[in-house]
Write a protein that binds this DNA or RNA. Structure first.
Lengths: 152, 152
DNA sequence: CGATAGCTTTACGTATACGTCAATCGTATT
DNA sequence: AATACGATTGACGTATACGTAAAGCTATCG
């Protein structure tokens, strides 16, 4: 159904993408594909590019996104929903991009940074649990009062 | 030590606060108290007030924060770190403020809203876990490469 | 070959969340 | 009384993260 509705699509990126396998996990994506998949606007995706978070290939000017680009966008969207700025996320992506290279010094830095971020995220989970606890209380109080009022 | 360093403090709010028990859990707080405790600026706290998230009492113009105000600020700060806007947080605080009152209709709405928010927060925890998983991978790859290089 | 669809850049506008003066006022110490 | 400290209210400025036209290129359809 997805391929059928795409029949009428045009543009350089589209043509290129559709010529490279349509099956299950495409190798390339247009900006509209990613826009739909992650629920972000074209404008936002381009904005992330100007901020250095993405750098897709081009074809006649049109942007072609690889799987790696797509993975990066997934991370961006996720990080944003967790309250991180694009600047934060850029740092993360930098470390995510070169997780294997460099000499010992660089590897140690990356290991340390990732450990820090894990700790930070776990603290965030803690915060969420606290918030959930408060909400559970509110919920229970309401439900109790409702049953009491209904039993009247 | 805290009380000692506070010796030189002045201002209406301060005087009022210090006259009302300094022991462990004060009943009232100055803007500086809350600013220090939660790591937010005076400016931010006043801004939250203009947005209707806080509404402290006054004494000669100076703001006096109750425990309830303090609890609300705690929630604001926490929600912010989790990526919620002040608008989102205001909605939450509204529901948090009146968790007991209203007739059945209102209680049911509050119960439903709190359940929704719990689900949303759990989804957020899920996102965090995914992010943590990626970071663990990066971390392990780095550490393995480090030990390999050092064994060389 | 003209229309249409989809993509592009450029530029200015907007919403959120404060920061940064500047002026002022009350309280407290010298 | 003078000075200093802490707080207050505007008013304007700034950073982040996009939104919104406007105008143009390019490929495909009819």
């Amino acid at each position: 159904m997805k391929a059928a509705t795409k029949k009428a699509r045009k543009g350089a990126a589209k043509a290129f993408v559709e010529a490279h396998g349509e099956a299950e996990a495409p190798d390339f994506f247009s900006i509209s594909d990613l826009s739909e998949e992650f629920g972000v606007t074209h404008r936002a995706i381009r904005f992330y590019e100007t901020k250095g978070l993405l750098s897709p290939k081009r074809l006649n000017g049109a942007r072609i996104y690889s799987r790696r680009d797509r993975a990066r966008l997934r991370i961006i969207v996720r990080a944003k929903s967790l309250g991180y700025t694009l600047e934060d996320t850029k740092d993360y992506l930098d470390l995510y991009g070169q997780q294997g290279e460099g000499r010992i010094k660089q590897l140690e830095i990356t290991a340390a940074r990732s450990a820090e971020m894990i700790a930070e995220l776990q603290a965030k989970k803690q915060q969420i649990d606290e918030q959930i606890e408060e909400l559970r209380l509110i919920n229970e109080v309401c439900r109790r009062k409702i049953t009491k009022k209904k039993a009247r």
